[in-house]
Simulated assay, not measured.
Amino acid sequence: MKEDLSRLLNECMEHATEEDLHSLRQLLTGMRKKQEDGGPLLGGVFAMEWENEEDTLTLTIPITPLTHNSLGIVHGGITATMVDTIMGTLANRALPSGYGAVTTNLNVHYLAPGTGGELTAKGQIIHHGTKTMVVEGKVLRSDGKVIAHSTGSFFIFKK
């Protein structure tokens, strides 16, 4: 397995553009981060940075070739992943020990293209029931423009 991966890596690097090398570095850095801190691979690969203030949780990622679609802007799936991640994290943080929440519905309204240096996701809990939660999220560009607005429903379960 390691020999196959080593050969593939060498072949990719042999024909790589600068953009390819940047993406490869980001992927490998994400893998290393996962190995070091045990967090999810997704967070490492997209270089997710978290900021937790008193009542606010934010998630920021750099816009890189790895986040682009074929039009050279952030892929909608990356934007959806950001709002699902911020909203799910908020939902789970609001629960007592021994409980978890999973997404049951996600609505994303794309409002503007994802361009610039980075994207930031923010969210807030709209409804916290005993079996479900509704959370609202938004993603902003570096210039402050909201590029997506989202709502999500989360099912609460005992672990």
Rank of each mutant, 00 (worst) to 15 (best):
L8Q: 11
D84A: 05
I61V: 07
M1A: 12
V102W: 06
H22S: 15
V146L: 02
G38T: 03
K34D: 00
M87D: 01
T79V: 13
V135Q: 00
S153K: 12
E3F: 06
L66S: 05
F154Y: 15
F46L: 15
E51R: 12
I78S: 04
V45N: 00
H109C: 03
E11C: 08
A112M: 05
H149A: 14
N107W: 02
N105P: 04
M82E: 04
T151R: 12
M82I: 04
H15R: 15
A80V: 06
D20C: 01
E3V: 12
N10K: 14
A148V: 11
S153C: 02
H15E: 13
V74N: 06
Q124I: 09
K131R: 14
P113Y: 14
T89L: 06
H75K: 03
A121P: 07
D20E: 03
N107T: 13
I63Q: 07
N107M: 05
K145A: 07
P65N: 13
L59Q: 07
L24M: 14
K33D: 11
L119R: 02
G123I: 01
I156Y: 03
F157T: 13
A94R: 14
F46T: 01
E19C: 07
E53P: 04
M87F: 03
I156M: 04
H75Q: 14
L111K: 14
L27N: 07
N52Y: 07
L57P: 06
R141P: 09
L28S: 13
V45T: 08
G38R: 10
L66C: 07
I125H: 05
M133A: 05
T29H: 13
L41M: 10
G38I: 05
